[in-house]
Structure formats: structure tokens, C-alpha cells
């Protein structure tokens, strides 16, 4: 009669020691190590009840190198950027900025949860702005629904109809005149990876 134990969490040996240093080098993430795990961020977060890891846990997981757990969590995508945690943190950690950096990493690594519409929306938005310089909400919403959930889109017909009737549904894509100039600027600024390059002392 053997008594068996099962490993439920990862050991340090299975984590990625390079992950925390990578995040800490990004703009706004410098104070990652200052977290005292008080949980204020999770307490004030209006969405933490839906998250698989609370913001406090995400900070600790990031710091400890749990790269996959963090990048695959729904937490970073449920963050609506209300900055409540950032302004409440007693250690002045810019938690919202850290979550942005994690979103960027997740998109880069294609690690976001399958079928999750938020990163798809972010990418479609990005493409539209690169191309036209402006967003046309109506086009964006239709594109998102086609890519993620056509059925949900059909269910929204009443709202769509009202938007058309009230003149709020754009049928012509908005665009800036000088698209070439904008693309040149975006090209030239390069892929900086969000790295801070050394903040001002």
C-alpha cells in the first residue's frame, strides 16, 4: 500500500530564470522586484473575480519565472487598463504597464489562449492603424466578429441596425492623407521591444 504524492506546482528548476529580467527591462516595469505581495492590486481590480491568476499572483509568478503560466493566463487579457492597481500600489509599481509588457510578450510568442478574442482585436486594430492611420470602429467590429464569433455577431443585429439608423456606423473607412509619412515614421522607430534603454536617473 504505497502512499503517492503528486506534484501540483512547478519547482524552481522548471521555471525560466530569464523571464523576470526580460520584463524588468521594459518601460514602466523597473520596480517589479519591489512588490511586497500585499494584494491591494487584486483587491481594487474590478475584474480579478474573473481572472485565473489575480494581479498579485501574476506579479509573483512573473518575478519567479513562471513564463508560460503568465503568458497563457487570461488575466493579462481581462485587464481593461483602468489603472486602479497602479495608483493604489503602496510600492508605486506600475502594474498596468507590467501587464502591457506581458501582453506584448504573449502576442510575440503567440502564447495567448486559443479563441480568445481580445488579442485578435488588438492585432486587427494594429493592422488597421498601420494601413490607414485611423480606425473605423464599424469595420473593426465586423472584422473581429468574422474572425472569432460570427454567431455572436448575428445576434447583435438590433444594435447594428440602430447604429446604422443613428448615423454612427461608418461605411467608408477613415484614413489620414499622409499615410506614407506615418508608415515611414513607424518603420524608422523600429522594433524596440518596449525596452527602456535605461531610464533617466
Amino acid at each position: 500500500m504505497g502512499f503517492t504524492v503528486r506534484q501540483t506546482i512547478k519547482y524552481e528548476a522548471e521555471t525560466d530564470p530569464g523571464f523576470a529580467p526580460l520584463i524588468k527591462e521594459k518601460r514602466g516595469c523597473e520596480k517589479l522586484e519591489a512588490c511586497i505581495q500585499c494584494g491591494t492590486c487584486s483587491g481594487v481590480c474590478p475584474l480579478s473575480i474573473y481572472m485565473d491568476h489575480t494581479p498579485r499572483q501574476v506579479i509573483l509568478l512573473t518575478r519567479s519565472g513562471f513564463r508560460d503560466e503568465v503568458l497563457k493566463s487570461n488575466t493579462i487579457w481581462l485587464c481593461a487598463s483602468c489603472y486602479e492597481c497602479t495608483v493604489s500600489c503602496p510600492k508605486d509599481i506600475k502594474i498596468t504597464d507590467i501587464i502591457y509588457s506581458l501582453k506584448q510578450e504573449a502576442i510575440r510568442a503567440r502564447a495567448y489562449p486559443r479563441g480568445f478574442p481580445i488579442p485578435v482585436l488588438a492585432k486587427e486594430f494594429y493592422k488597421m492603424v498601420r494601413g490607414f492611420g485611423r480606425t473605423t470602429e464599424s469595420f473593426l467590429v465586423v472584422k473581429l466578429l468574422l474572425k472569432t464569433n460570427i454567431l455572436a455577431g448575428l445576434k447583435m443585429w438590433k444594435l447594428g441596425l440602430q447604429l446604422v439608423k443613428s448615423g454612427r456606423f461608418g461605411f467608408v473607412p477613415e484614413s489620414i492623407k499622409n499615410r506614407g509619412q506615418l508608415q515611414q515614421i513607424l518603420e524608422r522607430v523600429g522594433e524596440g521591444n518596449g525596452t527602456n534603454g535605461g531610464p533617466k536617473k
Binding site: 501582453k103 488579442p119 486594430f125 499622409n178 521591444n193
Partner: peptide
């Protein structure tokens, strides 16, 4: 004149430098 999209939260999630 000829202002462009601010980028909002979405653009910042993809590429912050841009």
C-alpha cells in the same frame, strides 16, 4: 491637420514603441 489614431489600449498591447 491630418491627425492619426492615438493607438488606444490595443496598439500599446502589440508594439509599444510604435
Amino acid at each position: 491637420d491630418d491627425w492619426n489614431c492615438c493607438g488606444a489600449t490595443a496598439y500599446m498591447s502589440v508594439d509599444e514603441d510604435k
